[in-house]
Structure formats: C-alpha cells, structure tokens
Amino acid sequence: MTAYAIAHLRSVDFGADIIRYLETIDDTFVPYGGRFLVHGVDPEVLEGPFPGYVIVIEFPDIERARRWYDSPGYQEILPLRTENSDGVAVLVEGTADGYRATEYLAKVTGRA
C-alpha cells in the first residue's frame, strides 16, 4: 500500500545548509521509489491558521519509506533541515482503493 512522508515546516532559515539539503534530497529517495507529490507551493488555507509549508513524498509502501528515512544518505543530510527549520515530519500509510470513512468509524467504535 502506498505510503507518504509528510512534513509541515512552520519556519525555514533559507541559508547555505537548506540550500545543500535541497540540492541533495532528491537523490536520497530515488532508490526507495520516492517522489515529491507536494513541494515548494504555498498552501491555500481554508480553515484556521496554517503557517509554513507542506511537503509530501510518495513511496510504494511504508517499509520503503522507513528505509529511506533511516538510510545513511538521508540521515547524513537530515540535520541540515532539522537544525534550520521548525516543523514536524511523519510517515503514514495510504488507504486502499475504495476506502470509505465508515471503515475508520467501524475500527474505532467496533460497529460494522
């Protein structure tokens, strides 16, 4: 099942370290089948405050997403981002084709 690395960066210091990070990151996820889905665009905020930027990288599955994040290539450049930005990053698994919100309802309530 497709998985995603998602980051919400609330602030970024666009200095030399971030420039190096951006020049290098693409090559780190290519061996794991990753690709940017969302990057470098301003979000259209519909509700509530939302400072910063959203980044979404797609991977074929959660295992490859984990292997990318833990890889020596990414771990080497990760401090360039974490020491020069404020934000959060998560890995999430996508849903299967045909998924419906009531599936989650059944999961949390035990109701079918």
Rank of each mutant, 00 (worst) to 15 (best):
49 P>S: 14
41 V>H: 04
97 D>E: 13
22 L>M: 13
66 R>P: 06
50 F>N: 03
96 A>V: 11
51 P>Y: 01
94 G>Q: 06
75 Q>A: 05
62 I>S: 03
89 A>H: 10
101 A>H: 08
25 I>H: 05
58 E>G: 11
71 S>Q: 07
38 V>D: 03
96 A>H: 14
34 G>K: 02
49 P>A: 11
75 Q>P: 06
76 E>R: 15
34 G>N: 07
107 K>W: 14
79 P>F: 02
78 L>A: 15
72 P>K: 08
96 A>C: 00
72 P>R: 10
40 G>Y: 02
57 I>T: 13
35 R>H: 14
47 E>A: 09
96 A>G: 06
102 T>I: 14
19 I>E: 09
70 D>G: 10
24 T>I: 04
101 A>Q: 06
100 R>W: 00
65 A>N: 01
96 A>F: 09
91 L>N: 13
69 Y>S: 08
106 A>E: 11
37 L>W: 02
53 Y>N: 13
92 V>H: 06
54 V>Q: 07
89 A>F: 03
77 I>P: 04
67 R>G: 00
83 E>T: 11
28 T>F: 00
22 L>G: 11
82 T>C: 06
22 L>D: 02
101 A>G: 07
51 P>C: 00
59 F>P: 12
24 T>V: 05
60 P>N: 11
107 K>A: 15
56 V>N: 01
91 L>E: 12
